[in-house]
């Protein structure tokens, strides 16, 4: 049996990482109505950029910053053609974009090829015991997640946040009310991609090795499920969804060691999450938490 403390610490570190990814998808889909099925692409770009730079000997903050900038630029770049498309095409294009990046990384040996990048320097100093290492990692992702949360908080509780909700509800009406919707959508794409980038950069140094196959489209779908659980257009729900999903996954992972099943126990997790999603789709399609208001308008 694994050490339960470490197991839980590790779980919360992933809740932090995926909480950031969920906030990022929530900004795009929940608030702005942009269908991004390729969240993993920007997570991957952040992870690879930072891993390459830090393994070359640069400090982690340079790596993280580069991960953020490159992911964000990639988001901006793909948004230029993609945001002119209808929403369903945007979904397909982002999905394909993720796969293209993954396949390129798999085939370019100077970028690690199929084996990826190993020996990524961790942000935690060497020589700490494992539990302390995990605590430092957890503290770090908490800071990152808090910053992302604050950025999202400022955005959605502001006139900017009102306009992106308008784009989601009716883009033509928003444009007719004088808003350059393209500029708003591109900004959201860039900011969200930056968040996915930092999540990736953090993850890379945490696990210290990354491979292209860690970044399958399933990762993007996982983030979608988290947003769906926590609630669309709710930034607190992003963390709740990540917590529920990962908690569920871990519980299923432990359960399978104790259960005698007529099926391959490794599939248990997929079956259970599938069921969970079905239950939500039928009973509470909007997710657990309601949409965040723009403002409370106290006294109005």
């Amino acid at each position: 049996m694994v050490n339960i403390e470490n197991f839980i610490l590790d779980m919360f570190i992933y809740v932090g990482i995926f909480g950031v990814l969920s906030i990022s998808l929530n900004l795009e889909y929940g608030f702005t109505g942009l269908w991004n099925f390729g969240k993993v692409a920007f997570y991957m770009i952040g992870a690879y950029t930072s891993a390459i730079i830090t393994t070359l000997g640069q400090p982690f903050y340079i790596g993280f910053a580069a991960g953020v900038v490159v992911s964000s630029l990639a988001g901006l770049l793909i948004s230029l053609p993609a945001l002119r498309l209808r929403e369903d095409y945007l979904g397909i294009l982002t999905l394909v974009f993720g796969e293209i990046i993954r396949i390129i990384l798999k085939n370019e040996y100077w970028l690690g090829g199929p084996l990826g990048i190993r020996g990524i320097p961790s942000i935690t100093p060497a020589g700490l015991d494992y539990t302390t290492t995990l605590l430092v990692q957890l503290a770090s992702i908490t800071v990152i997640a808090a910053v992302c949360y604050l950025v999202a908080y400022r955005l959605i509780h502001s006139p900017f946040g009102r306009v992106i909700r308008g784009i989601r509800e009716d883009e033509l009406a928003t444009a007719s009310l004088g808003k350059n919707t393209f500029r708003y959508k591109a900004s959201i794409f860039a900011i969200s991609s930056a968040m996915a980038g930092i999540a990736g950069a953090f993850m890379g140094q945490y696990v210290t090795s990354i491979t292209p196959d860690q970044f399958m489209p399933f990762v993007s779908f996982t983030v979608w499920m988290m947003v769906m659980l926590g609630g669309f257009a709710n930034i607190e729900g992003a963390f709740l969804g990540a917590f529920l999903y990962i908690g569920f996954e871990r519980a299923a992972r432990i359960a399978k060691d104790y259960l005698l099943l007529p099926i391959d126990p490794n599939n248990l997790m997929f079956i259970l999450t599938g069921l969970l999603i079905l239950i939500f789709v039928f009973l509470r399609p909007q997710g657990l938490l309601k949409e965040n208001k723009v403002r409370d308008y106290k006294g109005v």
Partner: peptide, 8 residues
């Protein structure tokens, strides 16, 4: 009408 239905 093309209102923003889910907004106040």
């Amino acid at each position: 009408p093309r209102l923003f239905q889910k907004m106040t």
